[in-house]
């Protein structure tokens, strides 16, 4: 069976960056693909970091974070406007 393409369409927001780092550590340890990114303004006014993940794993992610006592603000289904392809376009046009 072909593997599903990786779509980081989930986003976890946090109250403090301390929790974002702990979340990343706990999830990576459990084999999840996660990426820390600047929190998008339209999701949360916090100026800290948010964490992208595959939204289809939302329940498992919530579970791992709860088990590791990582405080979160919210879990969103959200795709960053700036896709990797469009970032590449910026780079090429430099």
């Amino acid at each position: 069976m072909a593997e599903q393409p990786l779509v980081l369409d989930g986003l976890v927001t946090f109250f403090a960056s301390h929790h974002a780092i702990r979340a990343e550590k706990a999830l990576k340890k459990n084999g999840f693909v996660v990426v820390l990114v600047p929190g998008p303004r339209e999701i949360s006014p916090n100026c800290g970091v948010a964490m992208q993940f595959e939204y289809r794993c939302a329940e498992q992610v919530r579970d791992v974070l709860a088990r590791n006592k990582v405080q979160i603000e919210a879990i969103h289904q959200y795709r960053m406007e700036m896709s990797p392809e469009s970032i590449d376009k910026f780079r090429d046009g430099r």
């Binding site: 960056s17 301390h18 780092i21 702990r22 990114v37 100026c47 970091v49």
Partner: peptide, 21 residues
């Protein structure tokens, strides 16, 4: 600067602080 920006250098600084904690 830890916890202030979302770029990779800021995130790495946050990791350092978190590891120390």
């Amino acid at each position: 600067s830890p916890g202030r920006s979302g770029h990779r250098m800021s995130i790495e600084a946050s990791r350092i602080v978190s590891d120390t904690r």
